[in-house]
């Protein structure tokens, strides 16, 4: 079966986020960018499905400026077969991203679509669910295990208080949580090979989608700073402070 994986280019998770002085956003000039960590897990899962003989082709798609081709190439180096870049320099909000991906799903007809549960920049946790709703598919969000069985897939989900397993008819959407797998690194020969894999570039207009952002960001601020407290010398002093000064126990 064909698997579609969506990946997003975001600020590298090791980079310290700085809010712009004019409060219009986060400063991304000359900042290291990388594939969103949850998307790496999505790529890895697809590659494992191919290694198991469940998936036959892995198509990776990314939405964003020309530079997002770097993340598609990374996915190709990890084992995806071909890439589709939906090129735009505009801001793409979750609903529009879902509409663009829906257009790709209509064209490619994958049996399984795997996405990260959220991107570490916008932290929305929406696109996979929105895509599933628009495509009329079932969804297994926050997945820690994915088992394809004939024309259905069982997805074990990380939920508050434990794990829940749902059974979904294929085609279906899966969004990844941290424990699903541990992504591999791309080897140098595979990075070289990835340069020759097909990568098609399309515009939102090619897919028949007009971007229409519904949310306007009025301002972006730094979170309130916590003032450091005091060091206590012993457990008994700590207990005394918690009882009599902070009054929390």
């Amino acid at each position: 079966m064909k698997v579609l994986v969506a990946v997003k280019r975001v600020i590298d998770y090791n980079v310290k986020v700085r809010v712009k002085a004019d409060n219009t956003g986060v400063d991304l000039t000359n900042v290291k960018m990388a594939m969103n960590p949850f998307c790496e897990i999505a790529v890895e899962e697809a590659v494992r499905l191919k290694e198991k003989g469940v998936a036959t082709e892995i198509v990776v798609v990314s939405i964003g400026p020309k530079t997002s081709q770097e993340q598609i190439r990374t996915a190709l180096a990890l084992g995806a077969d071909r890439g589709i870049q939906i090129e735009t320099d505009e801001e793409v909000q979750s609903l529009d991203a879902a509409k663009l991906l829906k257009a790709v799903v209509d064209k490619e007809q994958p049996q399984l679509v795997i996405l990260g549960k959220q991107s570490i920049d916008s932290d929305n946790n929406q696109t996979g669910q929105m895509l599933a709703a628009l495509a009329g598919m079932g969804q297994g969000t926050f997945a820690s295990e994915v088992v394809v069985d004939g024309d259905k897939v069982n997805v074990t989900r990380e939920v508050d208080g434990g794990l829940v397993t749902v059974g979904l008819k294929l085609p279906a959407v899966v969004t990844t949580d941290l424990r699903l797998n541990e992504p591999r690194y791309a080897s140098l020969p595979n990075i070289m090979k990835a340069k020759k894999k097909p990568l098609e570039s399309v515009s939102p207009a090619d897919l028949g989608v007009t971007l229409s952002p519904r949310l306007t960001t009025l301002k972006v601020e730094e979170p309130p700073k916590r003032a450091g407290g005091i060091k206590v010398g012993s457990v008994s002093e700590l207990v005394e402070k918690l009882k009599n000064e902070a009054k929390v126990i």
Binding site: S94, L95, A98, N125, G128, L131, F142, D160, L215
Partner: peptide, 23 residues
């Protein structure tokens, strides 16, 4: 914004063709 809300609310928004605001 527990795991249940995060699971179904984006679908609600997509079905209504509106944005969802998280958290």
């Amino acid at each position: 914004a527990g795991t249940t809300g995060k699971d179904f609310m984006p679908r609600v928004a997509a079905l209504l063709d509106v944005a969802q605001i998280s958290d």
